[in-house]
Every structure is written in C-alpha cells, then in structure tokens.
C-alpha cells in the first residue's frame, strides 16, 4: 500500500518555537483518490500542507511527493505537476482574471491558451477581462481554483477550497473535482466542516492539535465512533419513576427530568431494548432520538451548545 502512495509523510513534525504545529503525522494518500483533512483552525492542516508543498521544511520526519522529497533536486518537476490553492488566497487587484491566470501559467510553464477555457470551467468566463479588484470573495476563490488547475496537475492541494463559495459554487466545485478524479488526478483538501465534505471524499483524516486523530473512509469512522444517543421522552400522566427504572435497566445513563419530560443517554447497541421497554408504557407519547454527528465526536464539540462550541474552537485555535 505504501508504494502506491503519491503523497507520503512519515513521523512528520513541525515545531515553531515551543509550539508543535504538526506533531508526528503519518499519512499515505493514494493515487487518484480524493482525500479530506479535517480539523479546527490551528489544528495543523495548513502547516502540513505547506510542508507537503516544500514551502516549509519539517523539523523532523520525512515527506515524499510521488516518491521524491518536495524541496529536493526534482523540486521544479514536482512543482509543475501539482496545483495549490492556498487558504484565503489573494491576487493582484489591478490585473484582470485572465491576466492573473496568464501570469501564473507563465511562471508554471503551462499553456497560456488553457487560461480562458479554465476560467470558463470555473464559471468566470464573463469576468475574464474584469479586474480582480471588483471580484466577490466567491469569484476570487473560483479564480484560485482555476489557478490550481493550470498545467493539468497530477496532485491538487486545496486548502479550505470552499470558503466564500455559495451552495451553487460548492456544487460546481465538487463536480469539477469529480471530473478531475476520473482523469486520475489525486486531490487532497482541507476543511473544518466535516458535514460538507463527508460524502465527497474517498477517505479522510481528522487532525487535532497537530496529530491525526482518526483516519479512514467515512463508513469506517462511523462504525468506529460508537456514538452514544440521547433519548428524550414525552410523558402524559403516568409515573415518571417507572420510565426512569426501565431506562436504567436498559443501561441508560444521565437519566434526568421528571413529570412530562425525561432525557437520558443510551448506547447504540441497547437502543432498541430501551425503545421496546418504553413502547409498552401508555404514558409515553413521544420519543425523540438525537444522534450526535461525527463532527461532534471527532472534533470534540460534544453536547455543548453553540456558544461553548465557539469557545472551544477558539481555544484550540490559539493552541
């Protein structure tokens, strides 16, 4: 498996002073797959990307792109065969979209005549001769994507590619990505929104504080996660005590509430057991089952409310 990997990192570490931005990452991205890298801001995704591109050199460990170190002898060859869309990409305001693309095509040694078709592909044909100054955030992102596709790269590195895109833009983006995959392009992309990319990547890695927390297909992650459910039971009349007792018998924990409403945590394997027991009680008029998303589990949001979520994201961001 390792030999088929087009991107390979081995025990890669990047330290900025005291901070370990990337803390021992082992990854192998295979040829032709779409690979997602998920994590908070500050989890180390961009740093890992920059090391893969050879923009930063690892403090220790090894990185190979197509079997070669990205900053070594073959650096020009490797650079020509990859496309990179940086996070929050910025261009030159006074150039038009087409001029921007031609500038990067010249630098990359790619075909200048491919620029206009590329702009068309990302839906910017109408704005090709307008200055980037007047572009919206979404248009800039589309231009950045077109730039990454210059010279038919073998590998695409896309750092937060869908920020600033509207839903239509996001759909367009993944449609193009799928088309490129069928041509054999390998894509590695980052996001901090799991829900958006989960059905669109072949495999994904979840990054947390510089480490890979989980790695695999969406299905395998789901199975591994073993997420506890949350039950909420509406009662009309009847006695709450019986309900509580039945819940505890079915292995539920954190059983709270009294008349009218009871909530509890329940393991997935014993869900049906609990439901069957509750169903026999006439006082139970409704049962709501809340399933935490994978995002909640892997990104550590847990059961917190939205406010707490922001806070914890911020905290990790600063780390």
């Amino acid at each position: 498996m390792a030999s088929a990997a087009i991107i390979e990192t081995r025990q890669t570490v990047k330290r900025f002073g005291e901070i370990r931005a990337v803390d021992g990452v082992d990854l192998a991205v295979e040829k032709g797959e779409i690979f997602g890298l998920i994590g908070h801001n500050g989890a180390g995704k961009s740093t890992l990307f920059k090391m893969m591109l050879g923009l930063l050199s690892p403090t220790s460990g090894e990185i190979r792109i197509d079997g070669r170190p990205p900053a070594g002898e073959a650096f020009r060859q490797i650079r020509r065969s990859i496309g990179y869309l940086p996070e929050n990409v910025a261009f030159y305001d006074h150039l038009t979209g087409l001029e921007t693309l031609r500038f990067f095509a010249d630098l990359k040694g790619a075909d200048r005549n491919a620029c206009l078709p590329l702009l068309d592909k990302v839906g910017l044909c109408h704005a090709a001769r307008r200055r980037v100054h007047g572009y919206s955030k979404g248009m800039r992102q589309r231009l950045g994507f077109a730039q990454a596709m210059l010279g038919n790269p073998k590998i695409l590195f896309l750092d937060e590619p869908t920020t600033g895109l509207d839903p239509e833009g996001i759909r367009d983006f993944y449609r193009i990505l799928d088309a490129m995959r069928t041509q054999g392009t390998t894509v590695i992309l980052t996001s901090h929104i799991l829900a958006e990319i989960q059905e669109r990547v072949d495999r994904l890695a979840i990054m947390k504080m510089g480490r890979i927390d989980a790695l695999g297909t969406m299905q395998s992650l789901r199975e591994r996660a073993d997420i506890p459910l949350r039950l909420q039971i509406d009662l009309r009349g009847g006695d709450a005590d019986t309900v509580r007792r039945l819940l505890r018998q079915a292995g539920a924990t954190e059983v709270n509430g009294g008349d009218g409403m009871i909530s509890a945590r329940c393991a997935r394997q014993r869900k049906m057991e609990a439901l069957r027991a509750l169903a026999s009680l006439p006082a139970v008029v409704d049962i709501q089952i809340r399933e935490p998303t994978l995002e909640d589990v892997f990104l550590g949001y847990g059961q917190e409310n939205a406010g707490g979520r922001m806070e914890s994201a911020e905290k990790e961001g600063r780390l």
Partner: peptide, 14 residues
C-alpha cells in the same frame, strides 16, 4: 501581507 506570497513560492521557482 496581501497573502499572495505562498502561492508565488509554490510555483516552480526558487
């Protein structure tokens, strides 16, 4: 500061 340096440096250019 503009945010275009990373992109420039990712080109086949030293």
């Amino acid at each position: 500061e503009r945010g275009s340096l990373d992109l420039l440096l990712s080109m086949p250019m030293t």
